[in-house]
Design a protein around this nucleic acid. Structure first.
Lengths: 189, 189
DNA sequence: GTCTATAAATGGATAGAC
DNA sequence: GTCTATCCATTTATAGAC
């Protein structure tokens, strides 16, 4: 039985998990591979050994973070419930005391880097965008899905990354109602 | 008559203009003071001499970029026109061939850095946010203004910074109608 | 399978000359 | 008022030992 610290697969996984957290909290340009490796208990060299480069690591991080349906339900019910359920999830996840993790935070904190933005766009097309569009009926499903994602991303940006005061202090039911009404414009066919 | 290259005010202004362009195109973490100085025809040392630090320079850049009313009209007409006019301006400015400049791009490309995010939040409160809220009637004007800004920022992000395909290729009138309908949720009292 | 050591480049900021 | 030269920290990535 090999030691954990000499198991390649476990080491790779530890690096990947450390990278998901680090990139999500501080963005592609905000973290170095040294720090990611140290959090995983290894040296920076192994990051390049297992993922080729920082960019290669980020590609796997995006795939890991965007794959699970954290915000858009996988099997949506009737569309009118989709708008409200999504608005509720958004308001809850961006509340002042909440954990600021997940794919949206990863996107917002890494989008400034053009290479990272390309990788994110590919991840959106494969996962969140496709999942959202599949839940919509009627014409222009993909465009409507992307407009919906834009609203989610914008609210996440202003409320948690920038931290504008009125959105931070906003009362949950009022904000939820407003966002649900806006989302229903793209969700209701 | 002093030479331009020995006029402190002109040099300061040249650095500031170079910095507005550079930070807007590549974000706070994406440019170095060396590059900004070189574009202004001076050395990096003068940046620190006139602005104290990169952070001090960024503070003035934000104030410069957020001051003019580039997207939210200064003297809005009836609110129902405000939603449509804003949607039209947004779609035009984020069109594939358009110039990707202005305060939204500056915000989106710099928000990942926490210090830059703080400076941006202050700029929004003083300029865009206040201007937008002043154009709204009814209760919760500031919250509604910030939700509107969130939609604008999110669309700008997805359409030009990330570049999701359906939004890039979207037909102008359809997209404009949809965004105007969403904006009217927060604009119409 | 993982390490130390280091290469090669780049970052912001400063000292002191002119 | 502006420059050259430099300091010091930090980055990604690689070479070679164990």
């Amino acid at each position: 039985m090999e030691k954990r610290s000499r198991n390649a697969a476990a080491t790779r996984q530890a690096i990947l998990e450390s990278a998901v957290t680090a990139f999500t909290k501080r963005g592609y340009d905000g973290v170095g591979v040294r720090e990611i490796a140290a959090d995983a208990g290894v040296t920076a060299m192994l990051v390049n050994r297992y993922f080729g480069s920082k960019e290669g690591l980020f590609t796997e991080v995006v795939d890991t973070a965007f794959a699970p349906p954290t915000m858009i339900p996988d099997n949506p019910e009737v569309p009118v419930r989709l708008a409200r359920a999504t608005a509720e999830a958004l308001v809850a996840r961006t509340a002042p005391g909440a954990e600021h993790l997940g794919p949206f935070e990863l996107m917002l904190r890494s989008a400034a880097n053009p290479r990272a933005a390309d990788i994110i766009r590919a991840g959106i097309e494969r996962h969140v965008g496709a999942r959202f569009a599949a839940g919509l009926e009627g014409p222009d499903a993909q465009e409507r899905a992307e407009v919906g994602l834009a609203l989610l991303a914008g609210v996440w940006l202003m409320r948690t990354v920038i931290g504008t005061p009125a959105l931070r202090d906003s009362q949950t039911p009022v904000l939820t109602d407003r966002l649900a009404a806006m989302l229903s414009v793209v969700v209701d066919p």
